[in-house]
Amino acid sequence: MTTTVLDKNSQKTIFGFWIYIMTDCVLFASLFATFMILRNNTNSGPDSAELFSLPFVLTETLILLTSSFTCGLAMLAAHKGDKKRVGAWLAITLLLGLAFLSMELYEFGNLVAEGHDWQASAFLSAFFTLVGTHGLHITAGLIWIMLLIWRILRTGISNVNLRRLTMLSLFWHFLDIVWIFIFTIVYMIGAL
């Protein structure tokens, strides 16, 4: 079993990607601030306590958390040079991510079908923007995971692929961290 270590150049690339993630945090911070300010401006419509189902959101949260964990396991397998395990853990991460995204789209679909779309109130505009932006990031991450599984199965755990995997796992853990705050601020505090 060989141990794969990143070279100096790859570490620089990963640091650059880290800087991108930090700027993305600022983007989410402004969306969170907007949401917190507009959360009570429901235009006489229903507020978050009436709209959201708590057990549904808890399931979503646990699924995303587990996918963050399996992504970490893929990282560990890659450092051991175990190509098949990397593929397997990434495939599980992909499936969990797809489950999460489907649940989110189902929730959005239900809200819109009942007439609570983003034009209904300032609160719902802010909600769809914040949660939708997170969902878009998840979608991008899922496409990335698919491409990476294909690359790794074809060309093995090369230095380039290990670098890509490291950046992907940073991105995926970051999305889970953003979700902690969506879970707390939008859903938990919203239910009070």
């Binding site: 708590l54 963050s68 560990l76 879970f183 239910a191 009070l192």
Partner: peptide, 26 residues
Amino acid sequence: KATLRSYITGFVLSIVLTLVAYALVQ
């Protein structure tokens, strides 16, 4: 350091913290 142990610790702690928040609100 990235070890199996660190990922499991992080995973278990996160689940516990999520469930505590959820139970409190419920």
